[in-house]
Amino acid sequence: MGLIKKLPVYTEKMPGGGIVMTSLEAALHNAQAKSLWYLLFGTACCAIELMCTGASRYDFDRLGMIFRATPRQADLIIAAGTITKKMAPRLRLLYDQMAEPRYVIAMGGCTIKGGPFYYDSYSVEKGIDHIIPVDVYIPGCPPRPESLLEGCITLQEKIKKQSLLDWQEKD
């Protein structure tokens, strides 16, 4: 008990003892939302903004987001940049290599609907949602780091609200 008394942030004095009651779901999902490791998947302009968000001024780490270079260790794929027809199968492959539960953020206009390359382009995939399921869309060309942070917080809210049944393997 001595240790717990030194950590007032984590426990509250409760009548008759120092036990915090919560559900497994809430504890798990809170933990999960606060440690989203994202895959370094940048293809185009948005990747530079993704890097800026990870660097000094915007500091992605405070959301518990650390970049991973391999899909096997990542929970989240931030599709930053245009996905072309040549790249689309590779994006699907990377998504398939990630372990469940996995999330996708579509960053920027190109990943939503082709962005500025919607008209007159013969090689751009018009939206990544026909390749992989998307959880959060962030519009912009490219979105500012603040919008990316906002998008990640939105995803965290979504994770916190899910139930354990969502963990089941989906087809």
Binding site: Y118, Y119, D120, Y122, S123, K126
Partner: peptide
Amino acid sequence: DEGFPMRKDWDAPDFIRM
């Protein structure tokens, strides 16, 4: 296999002109 896309007369079903 859709031909030579930079030719002026090139067209494809999913090619959307502005």
